[in-house]
Amino acid sequence: MTTASAEKTAENGAGEEGYNFAYLDEQTKRMIRRCILKAVAVPGYQVPFGGREMPLPYGWGTGGMQVTASIIGHDDTLKVIDQGADDTTNAVNIRRFFARTAAVDTTEVTAEASIVQTRHRVPEDPMTEGQILVYQVPQPEPLRKLEPREIECRKMHAYKEYGLMQVSLYEDIARFGEIATSYSYPVMVNDRYLMSPTPIPKFDNPKMHDFPALQLFGAGREKRIYAIPPFTKVKSLDFDDHPFEVQQWEENCALCGAEDTFLDEVILDDRGGKMYVCSDSHYCARRRAEGHRGTLSDSAAAAYAAAVGAADRPSEDGESAEWVT
């Protein structure tokens, strides 16, 4: 109980003055790591944990941050994305937080990161064994929309009573002719626990299955942690005669020409003009650096990149990313 005062002086000499390495005190980190171990041992099960107040608001990634803060070390390299992009305000802000409190290296290159913290996307580039993907979770309970009561939800998980979830999919097909859930699409993990994949688009669901990297999920406000260990079965719910399908676009990425990525719609004017670009900003920039081109001319693409501050910009730790042309 008295060790924390020693911890408070940032021993690494690099973190924020007056705060421990990666903000949380070591006791809290140990508590969270124990919860993570439990979560890994019971894939898909929501482990309650004593979530702490973080200096960012609830709903802005406090759960993911606590998980990251508990597992990050001096040698780690961190990538933070929001909506697939490294340069959205919230991603920048969280990356700044760890650069400031933990003084770790940051990167935008998926393959270089040892930890990737994400909100709403799984990176397009494959992740490998040894990497960790940390998801920020606003609502960990996949049954919440059907059953607002926590006590009843926990019973349904404990008894594996998931008929009601299937009813909601049935209702979609009866009403719309298809399962009208496009994100937060529920999955069964390891044939046992129903799990919310967080609001990633269902496009990303198949990536979770048999994923080589460890997937950790942190919900700060709801104080739950859950996990998918590497190479675990993750199945999106469906019907035999209405199998799970992912979104498809008729268009390709206007910048890099990719045909198989999740695309953001970019409104060009107020007369319905639009184009589509990869939501994963790093993936798109890398492909362009490799010479891939979409329909947009080079000069227009450069103008776009300059406007969104996406590609041709040094990352904030001052290192120019290698793939930038």
Binding site: G163, L164, V167, Y170, F239, D240, H242
Partner: peptide, 11 residues
């Protein structure tokens, strides 16, 4: 609902 609760998965 009861059918789905006991595992029916063919719409």
């Amino acid at each position: 609902e009861r059918l789905m609760a006991v595992g029916a998965r063919h719409y």
